[in-house]
């Protein structure tokens, strides 16, 4: 028997409990199969109507708010590309002071959420995010990571993975896609002494939903790093968005873990990892990769898995299946 749906800000036990009301409308012009909108739909359900969204420039902003239209059923603001953290800081500070002064009701807490892309977070918005985290603003910052600048047409960012083709890491005689290792944003966020940081993934909606609830309830800034497959930029069929997202977890490429007040926990253990080859073979952006490059990417994943296992103090993500 299905469990009853819950209200916003409550943790759930299975996906049947996810509340029905939608706070982002259809009819927007995101590409077919866009991972961002699976994530945004559920995070807004977890947050509910008493929410203000700050949305730095990026795909989500341009596909939802071309005047005179908007897909957002909660208050929403876009200011610029590099200042999501700072704008949210101001929103949160204003809510706090106006509630104290009686201009806004103190009975109804207002959640402040940033939805930002990887460009707007790991690159141009990095400083602004750092300031927001360090100052302790009670904001949930969601990094919707599709691993490149997709809005401007697939250029590499500081979050583009090793080996990936983008229009600025093309495959040529000298270059063979991205050759550097991406930033580790969870560790960077945690280094700011924030109470809560976690990775999320749309193929795991219950985990994603509950992490949002925890993030909203945290006594300070929270950082959610969302893995968001992009059919257009990663070159796969739009029907495979969830499959790609799931494979990222099953290969250990994207470990679902959290940092909660000093304690690390892996939320989706993977006893036997699939080889990284399984993950890259269904994405055109990795099609050019040589055996040597695939080996290197596997090493990068192995190192990351080892680091996370160390953080939690035991082997929760196992070895690659033989």
């Amino acid at each position: 028997m299905a469990l009853k749906e819950v209200g916003p800000m409550e943790e759930i036990r299975n996906h049947m409990q996810i509340p029905r009301p939608e706070y982002i409308a259809g009819g927007h012009s995101a590409c077919q199969g866009c991972g961002h909108f699976v994530i945004i739909r559920h995070l807004l359900k977890a947050s509910g109507p008493n929410t203000i969204v700050v949305n730095p420039t990026g795909c989500v902003e341009v596909v939802t708010t071309v005047f005179p239209y908007s897909s957002w059923k909660v208050p929403w603001i876009h200011v610029a590309f590099e200042n999501g953290g700072a704008v949210a800081s101001g929103v949160e500070a204003a809510v706090r002071t106006l509630q104290r002064k009686g201009v806004l009701s103190e009975d109804e807490p207002i959640n402040v959420i940033v939805f930002a892309g990887d460009g707007g977070t790991v690159d141009i918005g990095f400083q602004s995010l750092s300031g927001m985290l360090e100052r302790g603003h009670k904001v949930v910052y969601v990094l919707l990571d599709n691993e490149a600048y997709m809005n401007t047409g697939i250029q590499r960012s500081g979050s583009t993975p090793f080996g990936a083709w983008t229009t600025t890491t093309p495959v040529g005689k000298k270059w063979k896609g991205e050759w550097r290792v991406r930033k580790d944003m969870i560790q960077i966020a945690v280094a700011h002494h924030i109470p809560y940081a976690a990775t999320i993934n749309p193929a795991y909606p219950v985990d994603m939903y509950n992490k949002m609830v925890k993030a909203l309830k945290a006594d300070g800034p929270a950082f959610l790093h969302a893995y968001s497959p992009c059919p257009t930029g990663w070159r796969f069929d739009p029907s495979k968005t969830i499959e790609v997202a799931r494979l990222a977890v099953l290969t250990g490429y994207w470990v679902l873990y959290e940092y909660d007040h000093g304690k690390y926990k892996v939320n989706v253990p993977v006893l036997k990892r699939k080889p990284i080859r399984e993950f890259i073979k269904i994405q055109g952006r990795f099609r050019h990769m040589t055996e040597e490059q695939i080996k290197r990417l596997q090493e990068i994943v192995d190192e990351q898995v080892e680091m996370i296992n160390k953080l939690v103090g035991r082997t929760v993500i196992g070895p690659v299946e033989g």
Binding site: A80, E82, S89, G90, T97, L98, G131
Partner: peptide
């Protein structure tokens, strides 16, 4: 300063 102006935009947009 960029964040100063940005934070004030956010705050003013809430009515502060």
């Amino acid at each position: 300063e960029h964040s100063a102006a940005s934070a004030l935009v956010g705050a003013s947009a809430v009515g502060a």
